Lab assay of single mutants.
Amino acid sequence: MEVVDPQQLGMFTEGELMSVGMDTFIHRIDSTEVIYQPRRKRAKLIGKYLMGDLLGEGSYGKVKEVLDSETLCRRAVKILKKKKLRRIPNGEANVKKEIQLLRRLRHKNVIQLVDVLYNEEKQKMYMVMEYCVCGMQEMLDSVPEKRFPVCQAHGYFCQLIDGLEYLHSQGIVHKDIKPGNLLLTTGGTLKISDLGVAEALHPFAADDTCRTSQGSPAFQPPEIANGLDTFSGFKVDIWSAGVTLYNITTGLYPFEGDNIYKLFENIGKGSYAIPGDCGPPLSDLLKGMLEYEPAKRFSIRQIRQHSWFRKKHPPAEAPVPIPPSPDTKDRWRSMTVVPYLEDLHGADEDEDLFDIEDDIIYTQDFTVPGQVPEEEASHNGQRRGLPKAVCMNGTEAAQLSTKSRAEGRAPNPARKACSASSKIRRLSACKQQ
């Protein structure tokens, strides 16, 4: 084909351009004929944790799935940006308080904090938690009735009371019990989460009196709706648990309003109706937990002794299953770290194939690490110290990083047969305790 000078094309009309061969290198194709290559998922490591896909996002930050490269346990990490926390009232204080509380709590029905990582340079905090497959609110939203069968609701409620009793025994008032803060594992274990607005009572406090509340409006008791200066913290949790039980068994809320002012007005009056299909035992329990006067409201001991709580409820309806993943529609909620794991395991070791967030990740503290002497050669063979940054567990980050890069360049065919977990650990520049 004859090559045409581009400067001469402006002298031709459209018809003349076609005659000189423009149609031979300008093609129009339908979008259905285009085959897009999927974007390669680059592996990203935060300390010893391999990052997966997004699980959810809230006002405080994002939650992603991660894999512990040492234990191969599935975890969830809450990623918090200090810049964003400053824009939220009491944001930083709530996060630090939640970390302090979770560090000393150990119960099967309370979410466990596994690790805390802090990135000084990017001003990011990573709260590594045990993995929960789904939230209770997500399960309720997945069915038209917006409720659980009585047998399933009873099982979840009993676990909620177990976890709540443990928190109260530790002198902690949750203040925000609701389905949105109750998570579930694949085995059906309920976990109380989000202790950001919780309050730890003084060890020598005479009672459970509280003065502040930041919980969700629909789950607040009349004493808070009416603006009382002080109130019983434990009875606030009992009320919120009662509203939660009402919601998961009926699909409704005892109090509603077009806006928060109308909602608080209705809560302050204390008038509500219980659907007739709840039955006398459940209705009596709800009335005891939603008692207007805090002094007359049920205690956890009274809830445990109630006939509806103690009764064994046979399954009359099919239980609400864990819904498919909202993004991938995966009904099994498979591990989202698998594509990243395959990338590390299947590809040659190259620095361009993975990302390490930083050479140094500070753990379990908000301060910069200490310094240790770096050896410097002298005339008599002895070495003197220069400062060298280290990880919180004493690992020399720069030395590990250099060693990792040197190993990656060394030709050794046997290394390709290593397991995925050992490869992740070798790529991680800074081991965590």
Rank of each mutant, 00 (worst) to 15 (best):
G346E: 10
L263R: 11
P179R: 00
T249I: 03
K178V: 02
E317M: 01
E256L: 13
V150W: 03
L80R: 02
N119R: 09
R384T: 07
M22F: 06
E223T: 01
S299R: 13
M136R: 00
L427N: 15
R103I: 06
E121S: 08
H107W: 01
A218Y: 10
D237H: 13
L102T: 01
P275F: 04
N181C: 00
L113A: 02
D229R: 06
E407A: 13
I177P: 01
Q364D: 04
G56P: 01
K122P: 15
I248T: 08
E65V: 03
D53M: 02
F148M: 10
E317F: 02
S213F: 10
Y156M: 15
C134R: 13
F366C: 07
D176C: 00
L50D: 11
A389Q: 08
R40V: 15
D343E: 12
D208I: 10
R297D: 01
P324R: 08
A389P: 10
I192M: 09
G251A: 03
K82F: 05
T186R: 07
M18P: 15
S422W: 11
K96D: 09
R304V: 13
I274Y: 08
G188R: 08
I88Q: 00
D194L: 00
I46W: 01
E92M: 00
P324I: 14
L102S: 02
V173G: 07
D141F: 13
P314V: 08
K329P: 12
A406L: 14
C391V: 04
I35P: 15
N259L: 09
N109L: 03
V77L: 06
T230P: 07
A273W: 15
G257V: 09
L263D: 02
D359T: 14
K175W: 02
H379T: 10
A318S: 10
G408K: 14
L400W: 14
M11W: 15
L67A: 05
Q137G: 03
N94T: 09
K82W: 10
Q7S: 06
P280D: 12
M11C: 15
R331H: 00
P38F: 10
G196V: 07
S428D: 08
R75S: 03
D237N: 10
S142E: 13
V110S: 02
L9H: 15
A206P: 09
P321G: 06
L45V: 05
E376L: 11
R106G: 03
T249V: 14
A398C: 10
F231T: 15
G171N: 15
E291T: 08
D348Y: 04
P314L: 08
L50S: 07
I99L: 04
P294G: 04
T367F: 10
L80V: 02
F354V: 10
P339L: 05
K84N: 05
S31Q: 11
Y131C: 02
V243N: 03
M22G: 06
L245A: 01
P326V: 04
K403G: 12
R409T: 12
S283Y: 03
A198L: 07
W308F: 06
R426D: 11
K416I: 13
P294W: 10
P369H: 03
V372Y: 12
L285Q: 00
R384C: 07
R383G: 07
G394Y: 11
A43V: 03
F354E: 12
D176G: 00
L160R: 00
G171W: 13
Q170L: 05
E121A: 04
F219C: 02
E342A: 07
K262M: 08
L353R: 14
S240R: 04
G270F: 07
G233C: 11
C134Y: 07
D207G: 05
A389H: 13
P387Q: 11
G15Y: 14
M335E: 10
R28I: 11
N119H: 10
G58Y: 00
H313Q: 05
I361L: 10
T249H: 15
L9F: 06
D327I: 14
K191F: 03
Y253V: 14
M127A: 12
L201T: 08
Q123V: 05
Q364C: 09
D365N: 03
R106A: 12
R103C: 06
G180C: 07
N181G: 00
S59W: 03
K191S: 08
L167R: 00
D207S: 04
A295F: 06
L50W: 02
S404N: 13
K64C: 04
E357W: 05
S193H: 01
A200I: 10
P323E: 14
H154S: 02
Q170G: 11
E375H: 09
H379E: 03
P144V: 04
G180E: 07
E70R: 15
L140G: 00
S334N: 14
A429I: 15
A205H: 10
Q137S: 11
F157L: 01
T186M: 02
D30L: 06
E165T: 01
L54W: 03
Y272C: 07
G135D: 06
F354L: 07
G288R: 05
I29V: 15
M139N: 05
K403Q: 15
D208S: 09
H27M: 15
K423C: 14
V95W: 02
Q364T: 12
E376G: 08
E256I: 06
K124S: 02
G61Q: 05
Y131A: 03
Q7D: 10
A200Y: 10
H168N: 01
A218P: 02
S169I: 01
L17W: 14
D359R: 13
H202T: 05
C278W: 04
S283L: 05
L17H: 13
S193Y: 00
T186L: 13
W308Y: 00
K329Y: 07
S299G: 08
L72W: 07
Y272H: 06
D258M: 03
L183H: 11
A397K: 05
Q137N: 15
G381C: 07
Y118I: 10
V338R: 05
M289S: 00
R106M: 14
I99E: 15
L105W: 02
G346L: 11
P387T: 14
S334H: 06
C278V: 05
A273I: 12
E407V: 11
P324W: 03
A398F: 07
A410P: 01
N412T: 07
R304S: 04
V133N: 08
C132E: 06
K175R: 12
V95A: 09
M392G: 12
M139Y: 13
H379S: 13
